[in-house]
Every structure is written in structure tokens, then in C-alpha cells.
Simulated assay, not measured.
Amino acid sequence: MTDAAVTPEFTIQRTFAAPIDRVFDAWADPVQMARWSGPEGTQVTVLSGTIESGAQLHARSDAADGGVLYTLCDYRTVDRPDHLVYDQSFADADGNIVPCPFFDAWPATLRTDIRFEAVAGGTRITLRWIPVDPTAEQAASFVAAMESMTGGWSGSFDKLDSYLAG
């Protein structure tokens, strides 16, 4: 386990040309979230659960290349329209947490902490991604992947932009 003072944190911001309630609902409504989340070409299907404080959501992601991933999210805070916090892990088809399928050393759980702020012309979100209790090796792997995370989240945000505009 790493010391909280040295646990890495990834942060990204984006402003969307939509009202704060609309942007928040795109994250906090499972049907809406499934329509835009994930990399381009990925189809997300919510298998079970809901998005509310104390609830879990189990989802399947089907990639354009035929790959399949499952995730499990534990929702810690759903405070409409300002704040959303969930712990995300890779899972199997039954909703059991499993190791990351594409990195040898990756944190078992990532905390996603999103703040929504109404600004002129729309809503700015600040998303923080923080490994939960990573080993030193997992923390180093997380840091090494930050450039890729920027690209991944930017792609998801592009999809969210299109979804909100539609």
C-alpha cells in the first residue's frame, strides 16, 4: 500500500456547451451513460444496478475489435448536480472484481471524482482519477499511463460532446 501523500492523481477538465443538470444526468443516468461512455467504437451495456449513493453498477463494454471488458462501479457520492464519486474496477461477467486484463501491475480500484460547475456557456467538469491503495508498482504503472489516459478521456469527452449536442 502506498502512502496517501504519494498516491498519484490524474486530473482532466473539459467544458461542455450544455446546462449543468443535463451534463450531470448524462453521467448519473445509466441509460444516458451507456450511450456515450468508453472509447470510440465501444458499445456499453448496463447489466445490473443503478447510479445512486451506495449502489453498484455492473457493465459490459464491447469494443469494435471484438474485445469484451466488464466493469463494476461502487457509487460513493451522487450529489446532483455538483458531485459524483465512484470506485471502478475491472470485473468478470458475474460482477466479481478481477485484475486488469491488459496491464500486469494496475491498481485494482480507481476512484473517479467528478465536480460539475456551471460556467458561462455551459458546464465545466473536473475529473480526478485516483488509485485506491495501490502498491508502489501499481502507482508507477498508473503514472506511466497518464498520457494515454488523457487521450482516452478526451475521446470519451468528444463522444459526450456529441451526445449532449444531439
Rank of each mutant, 00 (worst) to 15 (best):
N96M: 09
G41R: 09
T50I: 06
E52Y: 03
V46K: 04
T71D: 01
V85A: 10
G66V: 05
I114D: 07
T50G: 10
S61P: 03
A105Y: 00
P101C: 02
G38A: 10
F102M: 13
T77L: 13
W106L: 08
H58Q: 06
D87G: 00
A105S: 15
S37Q: 12
T77C: 05
D79F: 03
F103H: 14
G49P: 12
A93F: 01
A108G: 15
E52V: 06
A105N: 15
E40K: 15
R76W: 00
E40Q: 13
P81M: 06
F103T: 14
A34L: 11
Q43D: 07
G67S: 15
T42S: 11
A93R: 12
C100K: 02
F103S: 15
A108K: 11
Y86Q: 00
V98E: 02
P99T: 02
R35H: 13
E52S: 15
Q88L: 05
V85T: 08
R60I: 05
R80F: 04
L72D: 05
A118L: 08
T42Y: 09
R76N: 00
A64Q: 13
P99K: 04
G38Q: 09
A118G: 10
P107A: 12
L47W: 00
P81H: 03
I51P: 03
I51H: 04
T112F: 15
R60D: 01
P101A: 06
D79P: 04
V44E: 00
Q88A: 07
Y70G: 07
H58E: 01
W106N: 07
T71P: 02
R35V: 14
D113A: 11
A91F: 06
D62C: 11
E40I: 13
Y75D: 10
R115L: 15
V119M: 09
R80P: 09
D104T: 15
H58D: 07
